[in-house]
Amino acid sequence: MVEVRGELDMATAPQLRDNLQRLIDAGDRQVVVDLAGVGFMDSSALGTLVVMFKALRDVDGRLCLAAVQPGVRRLLSITSVDRVIDIYEDVRGAEADMLSSDGVTGG
């Protein structure tokens, strides 16, 4: 799990990407990004999430988002990213779903 706080923008998106890439390089395949502490996200951060979603998908992994705040949720909805990346009300729900689908193909 990656917990993010503050604003996700062009200044902080590279740090998010580096943190997620480290998890992938370490072998993590089920990654939850906790956005409870994020009130603002710009297009560069949105792009970072999509790129890392694809990177995990390419290694049969999964990235999902949890505790997304209303402003960020609107951005995800407007851009239809919420149709691609699963969003959960909280980290517990995301982790539970990850565990229940771990090792399941086609789902």
Rank of each mutant, 00 (worst) to 15 (best):
V50D: 13
A96P: 04
V51L: 10
L49H: 09
R17D: 12
V81G: 08
G93S: 12
M1H: 13
V84K: 03
A55V: 13
V68T: 02
S101G: 09
L56S: 04
I85G: 00
P70M: 15
E3I: 14
L76N: 01
L16E: 01
R74K: 13
V38M: 04
A45I: 08
Y88G: 11
V84A: 07
M52C: 13
S100L: 09
E7G: 04
S77M: 09
Q30S: 02
V50H: 06
V72P: 02
G93E: 03
M52W: 04
G107F: 13
V31E: 05
N19W: 00
E3T: 11
L35T: 01
G107V: 15
V81P: 00
L35A: 06
A55Y: 00
V81T: 13
M1D: 11
M41L: 10
S80F: 05
I24P: 13
N19C: 07
R74N: 05
F53L: 06
F53E: 08
V32M: 02
V31I: 10
A55H: 05
V38W: 01
A66H: 00
S101L: 13
M41N: 08
V2W: 01
A67I: 04
M1S: 11
V31Y: 03
L65R: 00
V4T: 08
Q15V: 12
I78R: 11
L8T: 01
V91Y: 05
V91F: 06
R74S: 03
D90Y: 11
R73N: 08
F40G: 07
L49S: 04
I87V: 11
G93F: 05
S77H: 12
D34Y: 11
D25S: 15
M1G: 15
L99G: 00
T48P: 03
G103K: 05
M10R: 07
D25V: 09
K54Q: 15
L99R: 15
I78L: 14
M1V: 14
Q15M: 03
S77I: 11
G103A: 13
I85V: 15
G107K: 12
M98D: 09
D97Q: 10
D86V: 09
S100C: 06
R22I: 12
M98A: 15
G103Y: 08
R17P: 03
I78E: 05
R74W: 06
L75S: 03
S101M: 12
V31T: 08
V81H: 01
L76W: 07
L16F: 01
L16S: 02
M98F: 06
L56H: 12
D86F: 12
D82F: 14
T12Q: 09
R62V: 08
I85Y: 10
A66Q: 09
M10Q: 14
G93V: 03
R17E: 09
G93H: 11
L23W: 03
R83S: 14
M98C: 04
V84R: 03
L49V: 09
P14E: 06
R29Y: 03
D58N: 15
L75I: 15
E89V: 12
M98V: 10
L49A: 10
I85S: 00
S100K: 09
M52I: 01
T12V: 03
G6F: 00
V32T: 11
D28R: 04
I78Y: 01
G39E: 14
M98H: 13
L46T: 08
D86M: 15
P70Y: 05
V59Y: 01
L99E: 14
A26W: 06
G106T: 04
G47M: 02
L23H: 04
A94D: 02
A45D: 00
V33S: 04
D86Q: 11
L56N: 02
L23P: 02
I78A: 08
